[in-house]
Structure formats: structure tokens, C-alpha cells
Simulated assay, not measured.
Amino acid sequence: MTSEHTPIALITGANRGIGYEIAAGLGHLGTAVLVGARDSDQGERAAARLRSDGIDAHAIRLDVTTADDPTAAAEWIATRHGRLDVLVNNAGIAGPRRNQQPGSVELDTLRAVFATNVFGVVAVTEAMLPLLRRSRRGRIVNVSSGLGSISRMSDPEDYFTGLPANVAYSPSKSALNHITVQYAKHLDGDGIKVNAADPGPCATDFTKDLPGVTRTAADGARIAIRLATLDDDGPTGGYFDDAGRVSW
């Protein structure tokens, strides 16, 4: 069992991209990181890479869309560590863009995106709450997106208004933002801070087809790491990027 002085963090979808960089960043701060991944082999490889960099890392099979994996992961963490200090709900999917445009929406795509980006977050959070309540400083970070900002999407001065319409990915992040607020309200009395992070556009699998994206996954991870390590006087129930608060 890890020392009571070593923070324990679970990051979903941590085998690559921003999730991996969040795990690496927290690990370098002295946190023991649990690499959640739906593919066990990929999770093990990511954890091995982190360990080779001097980080205390372990892989956990965690497909957030299944009924059993969140519960099994919580049971493993309870047995191994006895608590959880940080939960970063990073796992997410974009879904095929062509199936999200109004007039040609495929409901199976909508269901799949919400299953991971919304229902999966709730399932994992519910499973981990008893462990987070055992922490002296529980933190939950939901990795959202600027595309979830209704204010930005409806502002004619914002370049977001020129992006193609979609009814799956962006709305799923808007829903995640509202869920963040609801958990923050409920858990405020327990000292558990819950915030949404906007990583901004980064050169990951999500944005590989978009021109002009130069920020790295490590750049995108910074805001989630900051929110995961908030002091006791830090905010809760907010939506943040590197520059500060993002408008809902």
C-alpha cells in the first residue's frame, strides 16, 4: 500500500495523448498515478514508460462504458491504496464528424459519444466517490473542451461560430460542464473540489486533421494538472483553461 503521504491519482484514458501527459505531470510532482485504459496492453505499456521515467505508475483496465470496469477499478484501488486523492476524467471520443452534422446525424454516433464523454464520467465518478471521501484533499477534474462553451459557440465574434455544426461532441462537453457543476455543489461540504478543464487545441489524435495546431499534448495537460493540485482555497465548480475562467 502506498504511503499515506503520497497522493494517489487515477487518470482515465491515460495511455496516450493528453491523458498520458497528465499522468506524467502528476507523477513528476510525486503522485502515484493509476493509468486507466480500456486496452490492457496499451495501459501496461504506458505505465512502463512512466516507470522508466521514475514515476510510480500502475495500469488499470478501465473501459468507462462498461458496467463492471469502474466498480472493479474502485475495488482494486481500495485494496491496494485504501483511498483516492485525484480523479481525472480524461477518457473521451470525438466520433466521426460526418455523422454529427445536422441533417445527417446518426444516432448510434450520438449515443457512442455520450456513452464515453458523459455517462462514462458519471459511472467512474460514482464508483470512486467513496475512495475520494477518504482523502484529505479530494480533487476531481473533468477534461472538457472549449467547444463545450455555449457562450463561445454563439458569440459572432468568436472563431468557434465558423466551425461546422455538430450535435454529438460539442454538446457532450456542454453536458459534462453542467455535470461538473452538480458534483461540485454536492461535494463542496466534503472538501472535494470539482472543476472542468479546457486543454485547448493540441496536436493529438483529436485534432490531427486540423491545420495550424501547434500546441502539444503536454501543453494541454497543464490546466488539468493545475486543477488536480489545487490548494484548499482554490475554486470549485468552475471551467478553466490556461488563461483563467472559460465562459459557460
Rank of each mutant, 00 (worst) to 15 (best):
L84Y: 02
R222M: 08
T180G: 08
D242K: 04
G146H: 02
S172R: 04
T12C: 07
A23L: 10
N15M: 02
D108T: 14
D209E: 15
D53G: 15
T2L: 10
S104R: 09
T161M: 08
D68C: 11
P199V: 00
H5L: 15
D190Q: 11
E75Y: 03
A224M: 01
I11Y: 04
T229F: 14
D198M: 02
D242A: 05
A14H: 01
D198W: 00
P96S: 05
P96I: 08
I60Y: 12
G103T: 12
V167G: 06
L230Y: 03
A165V: 07
M128Q: 08
D69R: 04
V113G: 01
R97M: 09
E21P: 00
F119M: 11
E21S: 01
G189K: 00
Y183E: 14
I55S: 07
D205E: 03
Q101T: 15
V64L: 03
F240A: 08
E157M: 13
V143H: 00
G43L: 05
A175Q: 05
R80H: 15
E75D: 14
T6V: 14
A184L: 08
R49S: 12
F114G: 10
S247P: 06
E21C: 01
P130Q: 12
Y159W: 13
Y183D: 13
G13L: 00
T65D: 13
I11Q: 11
Q101P: 06
A184Y: 05
D158V: 11
I150R: 09
V167W: 05
G17E: 03
R215I: 00
H5G: 14
G146Q: 04
V88N: 08
T214R: 06
I8A: 07
V194C: 05
H5T: 15
R61L: 14
I11T: 08
E4A: 11
A59H: 11
S154T: 15
G82I: 11
A14I: 00
A123P: 10
I192W: 02
T6A: 10
V121C: 12
A221F: 01
A196Q: 02
T180V: 07
L50P: 06
I11A: 09
P156H: 09
G220V: 01
R226S: 12
G234P: 07
F240C: 10
D242F: 00
G238D: 13
N142T: 07
D188Y: 11
T79K: 15
D158F: 05
P164G: 10
A37C: 09
A46P: 00
K208D: 11
A48G: 08
E157F: 12
A112L: 02
Q101Y: 14
T216W: 01
A115N: 10
A175M: 08
Y159R: 13
T204P: 00
A72S: 15
N117C: 04
V35D: 06
A115C: 07
T66P: 09
R61A: 14
H28G: 14
M1P: 09
W76E: 15
F114H: 10
E126T: 06
G138Q: 06
N142C: 07
A14Y: 00
F206Y: 11
L227Y: 04
S104C: 06
D190P: 08
E157I: 09
